[in-house]
């Protein structure tokens, strides 16, 4: 069903939705820049400051310095945060308060084109962050392997997965109060999705829960690439993220249609 819908999408109209966002953010560069700084600050504080106390942590049979271990995770977190804030907070504002989508859907633009446009913008934005962050990691000497360059497209995939899931989630939110739940989800993933510690450090009962989070799969990919530990399991992790993209898009397009065209 999604594929037949996708075939009818006009890239030009979805592109117009992206254009609108570009236009708005040409002026709001401070907000854009802050999305880049936040994970950098976490990296400097927890990776390097706290990292000095942590020393080395085990990874794939050897031990790596904590900042090297943490940096690729922050890359994944950044992709998640950028995607989720854009598709939850910003999209919700446009949906409920600015009535922007009512106006957009009075034109030939369809709900799916609208969703794809918003996600496309979100990816462009998070791709920009990821690229800059990855460059910074390399500068700081936190990318031991040349494979790290592939962490960029990986970060974009992570962004896509969370953008699609975020769009879907937003269609279920009722008021700003509900954003507390979004924040909880983001925070719990940030803290417990294998970002700060290897999976082995979690108690056995918690590990399957950790493995359920999309962020865990994202972190595993970026960390493996950054440290040069490639294996076939990575394809599985990537497949999980692709699954999230499809599920999110499908739900988002259906629900947006139902919300805006009752």
């Amino acid at each position: 069903m999604l594929t037949t819908l996708l075939l009818r999408v006009s890239p030009r109209r979805a592109g117009a939705v992206v254009e609108r966002n570009v236009l708005v953010h040409r002026r709001g560069w401070v907000v854009l820049a802050s999305g880049f700084f936040e994970p950098l600050l976490y990296l400097l504080s927890l990776g390097i400051g706290l990292g000095a106390l942590v020393g080395r942590v085990p990874f794939a049979g050897e031990s790596v310095a904590y900042p090297v271990f943490l940096a690729p995770a922050m890359l994944a977190v950044q992709a998640m945060n950028a995607a989720l804030t854009e598709t939850t907070f910003n999209v919700f504002g446009k949906l409920k308060y600015m009535r922007l989508y009512d106006a957009v859907l009075a034109t030939p633009v369809t709900p799916l084109e609208l969703a794809l446009g918003e996600i496309g913008w979100c990816l462009a934005r998070s791709g920009l962050y990821s690229g800059a962050f990855l460059g910074l990691m390399a500068l700081l000497g936190l990318t031991p392997s040349g494979w790290a360059i592939l962490a960029w497209p990986a970060a974009v995939l992570i962004g896509f997965a969370f953008a699609a899931l975020g769009m879907a989630l937003t269609t279920f939110l009722r008021s700003w109060q509900d954003f507390d739940y979004v924040m909880i989800i983001m925070m719990v993933m940030f803290m417990f999705a294998g970002t700060f510690t290897p999976l082995g450090a979690y108690p056995a009962w918690a590990r399957p829960l950790v493995e359920l989070t999309p962020l865990y799969h994202g972190v595993t990919i970026t960390r493996g690439l950054s440290l040069g530990h490639l294996d076939l399991a990575m394809l599985g992790h990537a497949a999980y993220l692709v699954g999230c993209c499809i599920l999110g898009l499908w739900v988002a397009a259906r629900r947006l249609g139902r919300l805006l065209q009752p």
Binding site: R13, G15, A16, E19, R20, A103, P108
Partner: peptide, 8 residues
Amino acid sequence: TVYARYFG
């Protein structure tokens, strides 16, 4: 202009 772009 943005609205016009929605019409292609």
